[in-house]
Design a protein around this nucleic acid. Structure first.
Length: 638
DNA sequence: CTAGGGTTAG
């Protein structure tokens, strides 16, 4: 039977008070500490420790091990280490105890150091030593170290059991040595579900999906970790459909596996990636149903999911559901980024201020969110000020990504010379993200001179990115510099750069409808084109001027206009208009940057047809909808 | 004792 912790604590307290008045024989201290371990009885433990010191007793290695375990389990790793340093007696038990303690706190280097000290004393390490030391090698991604520890274990004649074997496989997996991991797995005499899980996660992390799937199918017994490893593997490899499919299969299956908070957390990014709000809501409801919707990490993942699916209100609601004292850096960062990606710079800033007010220390990610919020909303002065704050107030050295945000802040505001100045004065080499931000800014503010500088750098840094060529080419076309347009086109051909086709998709009743430019394959294509044909006249009356500079080819103005009307984002919006009623939010997602003309047209549409719309641009990973691969990205809202 | 994990700009 299990005691209520409060009652248990009271009983222990009484017992200990008696004990301290009638000092026990030295050998009975160890079981006392054993009793105190794992229940956060730090105060009581300290009292007993003080009693030992008072009696002038020197703890044996055995007692020391128990004391170390008590301190470590009560959150006081410093006392555990200080105690360990004072004990002269040695034993494997003591070393194992302190190794375990330091592993738990993520002190990998320290743990490895303690292990080697142990080894130099002639204590070889046993079944309770290696799993922890190997985990530290894995966390440090240090194969040579791992191989060394592996060799020492072999030389002392230790035959790997399930735990040591699984830890070895995990170590090789985390160091990217799948070959070694597989060899060990195949050689293992007894395998555990964990051994399979480790290997599956390893193949998933290395993008070898087929092998992971094969192992999963061949598994004799699957637990929740096996399923979660598959789901998160699919998500991380840009296969959100399969992640959702797997989640569904698991929950429909009448097997005993029950999803836990890690499972929910792993499946939510799949909804975010496919921008499928319906799936996201379903999983939120499911999480509520099984009582996991109040978990802080789940709520944080929900905030991100709702933001990426376009529902800022739901994101904020989930954020507000996190108790104040549970809001950690990740939760705050997620909310700040949610606002930033929706172009709500003012709210991003005020959320940042709330965060500081609540006493949570910002980290590097906090500032990328905050600064990008400033740039999207034209808060130039705030952006500059916060960038300075990093150094002066929070003692953080701005990293490359922060400089990218700063360039974006200045660039979007049209302060291109200053932006270029930042690049030439920053302490590290500017990468593609920085030159890309400068190029995009030069395009929007029509500064051909700076655009050429940025583009020239990008043609070297990422020669296969067609977007850069197209952007510069568009600017030349804009300036009617047809010779330069042709030169660029020749360069594109010479380098064999493939233009990635732009496509947009919109979710309707849980199904994603996908369009590429000029697409006529959709069942409702005829209606869509009829609507789009009539559109220019309608919105020209409201003040619309087609911006044909967004068309690459040097063709006639009429043709350009037609070319514009068949952009994939317009097709998706037209489809949305046909199938919804006024007041609806249309959520269109695009793999590339939205075209400037489409942005304008859609603004007019939303005015005339009474729809609110949300447009995403995504390019930070690859996702998969209805069997097509896309690049995915950041959010812009109109 | 080992395995699955939420946040990032362009």
């Amino acid at each position: 039977m299990r005691w209520n912790p409060a009652i248990q604590k009271a009983i222990l307290n009484t017992l200990l008070q008696n004990l301290l008045q009638n000092p026990p024989c030295p050998s009975s201290y160890a079981p006392i500490f054993q009793l105190l371990t794992g229940h956060n009885f730090l105060k009581l433990g300290q009292q007993v420790h003080a009693n030992i010191v008072l009696r002038g007793l020197t703890p044996s290695a055995h007692l020391g091990a128990k004391m170390v375990a008590m301190y470590a389990s009560s959150g006081d790793i410093d006392s555990a280490n200080r105690l360990f340093d004072k004990i002269t007696d040695t034993s494997s038990l003591l070393y194992n105890s302190v190794i375990r303690a330091n592993t738990r706190y993520g002190f990998s280097e320290k743990t490895v150091g303690i292990y080697f000290r142990m080894h130099s004393l002639g204590l070889r390490g046993d079944y309770f030593t290696f799993p922890f030391v190997l985990k530290c090698c894995a966390d440090l991604c240090h194969v040579r170290l791992g191989r060394c520890v592996h060799g020492q274990g072999l030389r002392s004649g230790l035959e790997p059991d399930m735990y040591v074997g699984t830890s070895l496989i995990d170590m090789y997996v985390k160091c990217g040595e799948m070959g070694d991991a597989r060899k060990l797995f195949d050689k293992m005499p007894v395998r555990d579900v964990s051994s399979w899980n480790v290997l599956i996660a390893g193949y998933m992390n290395n993008g070898i999906i087929h092998v992971a799937e094969d192992l999963f199918r061949r598994m004799f017994e699957r637990n929740i970790v096996s399923w979660t490893a598959m789901i998160s593997g699919y998500t991380q490899n840009g296969l959100p459909d399969r992640a959702l499919g797997m989640f569904h299969e698991m929950t429909c299956d009448d097997s005993e596996v029950k999803p836990n908070w890690v499972t929910i957390m792993s499946v939510l990014p799949a909804c975010a990636h496919s921008a499928a709000l319906v799936h996201g809501r379903q999983i939120h409801n499911y999480a509520r149903w099984i009582g996991l919707a109040s978990n802080t990490s789940v709520l944080t993942a929900l905030v991100a999911m709702y933001a990426k699916c376009g529902s800022l209100a739901d994101a904020r609601y989930c954020f507000d559901s996190i108790p104040l004292n549970e809001r950690n850096v990740v939760a705050w960062n997620t909310m700040i980024n949610a606002y930033a990606s929706h172009g709500r710079g003012v709210e991003a800033v005020s959320t940042f201020e709330d965060m500081i007010q609540s006493g949570v220390e910002p980290d590097a990610i906090t500032f990328t969110g905050l600064l990008s919020g400033c740039s999207h909303s034209g808060l130039v002065d705030a952006g500059l000020r916060y960038f300075d704050c990093m150094n002066t107030v929070y003692f953080m050295e701005p990293k490359h990504e922060h400089y990218a945000c700063l360039v974006d802040v200045l660039g979007r505001a049209g302060r291109l010379v200053e932006a270029y100045d930042v690049i030439s004065r920053m302490p590290m080499q500017a990468g593609p993200s920085i030159w890309g931000a400068l190029l995009a800014a030069s395009r929007n503010h029509r500064n051909l001179e700076i655009a050429e500088i940025a583009a020239r750098k990008l043609f070297v840094l990422e020669p296969d990115n067609s977007g850069n060529y197209v952007l510069l080419s568009n600017m030349y076309a804009d300036a009617r510099m047809w010779e330069e347009v042709n030169n660029l086109r020749a360069l594109l051909k010479l380098r064999g750069v493939k233009k990635s086709p732009g496509c947009s998709w919109i979710e309707m009743n849980g199904k994603a409808h996908l369009f590429v430019g000029g697409d006529t394959s959709h069942p409702q294509a005829e209606e869509i084109y009829m609507l789009l044909d009539a559109l220019p006249e309608k919105i020209k009356a409201a003040g619309y001027n087609p911006d044909t500079s967004f068309v690459l080819h040097d063709i006639s103005e009429e043709e350009k206009e037609h070319n514009l009307t068949t952009h994939s984002e317009k097709l998706a919006v037209a489809f949305g208009l046909l199938n919804t009623s006024p007041g609806t939010v249309l959520r269109v997602t695009k793999n590339l940057r939205i075209c400037g003309d489409c942005h304008t047209v859609i603004k007019f549409i939303s005015k005339i047809y009474g729809r609110r719309w949300v447009q995403y641009r995504r390019n930070d990973s690859v996702t998969n909808i209805d069997g097509c691969a896309f690049g995915v990205a950041s959010v812009g809202v109109g």
